[in-house]
C-alpha cells in the first residue's frame, strides 16, 4: 500500500514535468501599462490604524463615561425635582 501511494505521487510528478507553463492572456500587458499611469494607492500602515482605533476608543469611552454620569444624575435629580414641585404646589395651596 505505501508503495502504491508513493507511485501515485511519483506518477503525478512525472506528468507535472510535461505540463507546459500557463500563459497570461495577451491583453494583460496593456492593462498593466494602463495601470502604471494611475497614481499608486496610499497604503495606511498597520501602526497608523492602531493609533486611529485607539483614539476612537478613547473618545467613545469618554462619551460613555459622560453619558453614564448624566444618566445617573438624571436618576437622582428627578425625585428631588418632583419633591420641590409638590412642595411648591402645597405651599401655594396654603396661601390660597
Amino acid at each position: 500500500m505505501p508503495n502504491l501511494e508513493k507511485n501515485k505521487l511519483e506518477d503525478a510528478l512525472e506528468h507535472l514535468k510535461r505540463l507546459p507553463r500557463a500563459t497570461p492572456p495577451p491583453e494583460l500587458l496593456a492593462r498593466i501599462e494602463a495601470g502604471l499611469t494611475m497614481p499608486a494607492a496610499k497604503v495606511i500602515p498597520l501602526g497608523e490604524w492602531r493609533k486611529i482605533v485607539a483614539a476612537a476608543l478613547v473618545i467613545l469611552s469618554l462619551n460613555a463615561t459622560a453619558m453614564a454620569y448624566y444618566l445617573s444624575s438624571q436618576a437622582t435629580d428627578t425625585p428631588r425635582t418632583e419633591y420641590a414641585e409638590t412642595k411648591l404646589i402645597s405651599d401655594y395651596q396654603l396661601y390660597y
Binding site: 507553463r21 500557463a22 500563459t23 497570461p24 494583460l28 500587458l29 501599462e33 502604471l36
Partner: peptide, 18 residues
Amino acid sequence: DAAALRELYARLADRVYN
C-alpha cells in the same frame, strides 16, 4: 523606459503567471 518593461514582461510573464 516602458519598452524595457515590455521586454522584461516578455521574458518573465509566463513564470509569474504560472
